[in-house]
Nucleic acid binder design. Structure first.
Length: 429
DNA sequence: TCTGGGGTCCTAGGACCC
DNA sequence: TCTGGGGTCCTAGGACCC
């Protein structure tokens, strides 16, 4: 493991990101409990602080909290990924102004390389970033600073949870570090999940400080290389660098639960064709072609009805990213999988085993005019990028979408759809 | 009635080779 | 009777992240 010398990292993380996005264009939500639900309006995936206070739990199924919602006037939203994606771009573009090297780690988080920055005034610098992001995008962020990414994560976590820090905390040369680590439960450390968290607790390693001081050999034995790296990082030795170039995906998956159970083959066929088309589009975006495709279908595992879960993996004769071929193979898999008489709840398509587009290997018997289809795909992507998803699509994808997910509480696409643009009455007081 | 979706990395173990 | 040792590749499964 190679240690990186004299590094300084910041982690900027948006507070309750999806809930905050809903608030930006809907000021009446300010100070009110707001929650955002997963696809299909299933579980809670984001909560404003006020929603946390009234007892809404992360991951809780929506139907189990009808009481809390009613009693506390909780505002509930379906996921609006178009809005969140656009807001994320705005936040990331703003953050990028403040460092030469940024790693967009997730939709609401970025690592910033602060190496070589003036450490004496680093907290003020971060406060400047925080207020700029708020002013330019309306999104509140918290920023943690430290010599390693893991410690920057810790700093961010503490800054977010303790109001006295105003959302910015630097652990660089901070004599409080160990006492703060001593108050942080071990499973709040980045890289320690549920399983390892429980395991460590059972062994008496209950806090981040315990983990920092744990025996390295023992950690290596039980938590392997990633665990060892976490311990090193807690000790201030940087092992995880900034990855500013987004690597190509090694697998691409599009899967959805249906809005209601489906038994009809044609409905599921339309859904699978749509997922396959979506996968191929993601694949083209990174200029890859795929050699392997998996299609799967399943019934509702929570329901008291006959269960069926199955998948089919297909090796493609020639690697491709053309929608027509990917759809064709997905549907031939589906035909083999489908059994009559079940109520299906979810289906999906997974692509794996990629090579670069320009490394295409043709076979002797390939009689498809690939150049022609490549042009077709280019036009298709062009039109859909300019005019919105699925403006042009394949007939097999259907127009009814009886399978479509439930989104009963969708907010407008304030920033990406002309008709959803807000109008402001300047005369009104 | 109602329970998300999309990724990554690492390890162990089996098959196979010389 | 006795059954090496080292390497690679692949896959399944388990852990993690958001």
């Amino acid at each position: 493991m190679q240690a990186l010398k004299n590094k300084l990292f910041a982690l900027a993380d948006c507070n309750n990101f999806y809930a905050s996005c809903e608030r930006v264009f809907n000021p009446k939500l300010e100070g009110k409990p707001v929650v955002v639900l997963s696809n299909n309006d299933g579980c809670v995936i984001a909560r404003s602080n006020e929603a946390k206070v009234v007892g809404v739990k992360m991951g809780q199924p929506a139907f189990q909290m009808a009481d809390i919602i009613e009693k506390n006037n909780v505002y509930v939203f379906s996921t609006n990924f178009v809005l969140y994606g656009d807001m994320s771009n705005r936040v990331m573009n703003t953050l990028a102004q403040f460092t030469p090297d940024i790693e967009i780690y997730s939709i609401d988080e970025a690592f910033l390389d602060f190496t070589g920055f003036d450490t004496e005034h680093i907290t003020d610098y971060a406060k400047g970033i925080q207020s700029t992001v708020k002013q330019w995008t309306g999104i509140p962020v918290s920023i943690g600073i430290a010599e390693t990414k893991t410690l920057a994560k810790v700093a961010n976590h503490i800054a977010k949870k303790n109001p006295e820090f105003d959302g910015v905390l630097s652990l660089y040369n901070n004599h409080m570090t160990d006492s703060l680590l001593g108050r942080l439960p071990v499973d709040d450390v980045w890289g320690v999940g549920k399983q390892y968290g429980k395991f460590l607790m059972d062994k008496g390693i209950k806090t981040a400080l315990h983990l920092k001081n744990a025996d390295e050999k023992w950690i290596l034995k039980h938590m392997h290389v990633p665990g060892q790296r976490t311990v090193m990082e807690l000790r201030g030795t940087s092992c995880i660098r900034i990855e500013s170039i987004i690597p190509d995906r090694k697998g691409i998956c599009t899967a959805r639960s249906f809005g209601k159970p489906m038994s009809n083959y044609e409905d599921i066929e339309q859904a699978v064709a749509t997922f396959a088309a979506k996968c191929s589009e993601k694949l083209r975006r990174q200029h890859s072609i795929t050699k392997t495709l998996t299609v799967f279908i399943m019934t509702n595992r929570f329901a008291d009805t006959p269960q069926y879960v199955n998948g089919k993996t297909i090796q493609l004769p020639v690697a491709t990213n053309h929608a027509n071929e990917i759809i064709h193979h997905a549907l031939s898999g589906l035909r083999l999988l489908f059994r009559k008489g079940y109520l299906y709840k979810k289906a999906g398509v997974i692509l794996s085993d990629f090579v670069q587009e320009d490394q295409q290997q043709f076979t002797l018997w390939d009689n498809i005019d690939r150049e022609k289809y490549a042009k077709l795909m280019k036009s298709l992507d062009c039109i859909n990028t300019a005019n919105g998803d699925e403006v042009v699509k394949f007939a097999i994808q259907g127009t009814q979408k009886r399978w479509k997910m439930k989104q009963e509480r969708l907010s407008p696409c304030y920033t990406t759809r002309w008709k959803d643009l807000l109008t402001i009455d300047v005369n009104k007081k």
